[in-house]
Design a protein around this nucleic acid. Sequence first.
DNA 1: TGACAATAGTTGATCGTTCAATCATGAGGA
DNA 2: TCCTCATGATTGAACGATCAACTATTGTCA
Lengths: 165, 165
Amino acid sequence: MANQWLDDGEQRAWRAFLGMTELLPSALDQQLQRESEMTHSSYIVLAMLSEAPGRSLRMSELAARAHSSPSRLSHTVSRLEKRGLVRRERSTEDGRGNVAVLTDAGWDVVVATAPGHVAAVRRFVFDVLTPEQVHQLEQIASAVLGELDPDGTLRPPSPAANPEP
Amino acid sequence: MANQWLDDGEQRAWRAFLGMTELLPSALDQQLQRESEMTHSSYIVLAMLSEAPGRSLRMSELAARAHSSPSRLSHTVSRLEKRGLVRRERSTEDGRGNVAVLTDAGWDVVVATAPGHVAAVRRFVFDVLTPEQVHQLEQIASAVLGELDPDGTLRPPSPAANPEP
DNA sequence: TGACAATAGTTGATCGTTCAATCATGAGGA
DNA sequence: TCCTCATGATTGAACGATCAACTATTGTCA
């Protein structure tokens, strides 16, 4: 009934996809929660900061890279700030802007947490896919992402969206 | 830093995948919220019931089909019950079990909501993928799902997991 | 039969997300 | 310059999800 306008193949793909997108985030959340008392979205925020020059980013830029709404990011950063993992600074260029900075303690948490997290990602995703499937996944996800966010407003500026040559 | 043990291709695939899994659920949620004041997970519950014989399912079976925890499903059904879309009945076979039944009002909501929802799914996913990519997506999602839930405890009993012949 | 464990599901507290409202600063035009 | 609007970000309330504890029923075995 619900999927009356999807054909059989689409329906199978959609069901499997729904299962994956329902279960994978919880699995990653649980792993991070056990090892570091951390949510996946909090971890993403720390990870993005850890990769940025000066380990700091404007809130808006950080929101884009984490695919997060301004509000959600603000709350997340507030929680991380309370734990001493991140610090806020007023932007020097634009008095309206805030800059989130990863503290040393925050850096240590990323360093301690990354291995286990990457192992989980490997285990659940890349270990069960062939190299070809990894490439296919990138193409598929990029295509969907392009429709969800055509302007790239919610995406990082540089990479991640290169169509087949 | 965070993804130090993923190679370039894996990294690109993972970033795109994260973006998709972050943005797609919100997009579907928003569409359903606008049209029917309904969450995606609530919709799934109603849709699963609408497809079941007698428009009813045991709570545990419904949880498996919706990839939901018992607790989450119980809360969701309680909310739907308050809105008159679902009703609970004690199982006749097993006095511990409860059965969720889709009411006529619930059925009407599914009928009214499905077209717009399917259109959104089409727009964001299937319209931007080739038939080949749809097949690839099914293979990929099934493989990941198999690792996330090896016993199929959280999956429907019959379909959705047929590997390459 | 009685005791104990396992199963099915619910509940309340807590935490994270969403939404609408708000505040402060910067930019542009009369 | 002053007024207005746009931008960057935060806040609090309401809602949904998660976790641990709990109730009720069934199954098992001595």
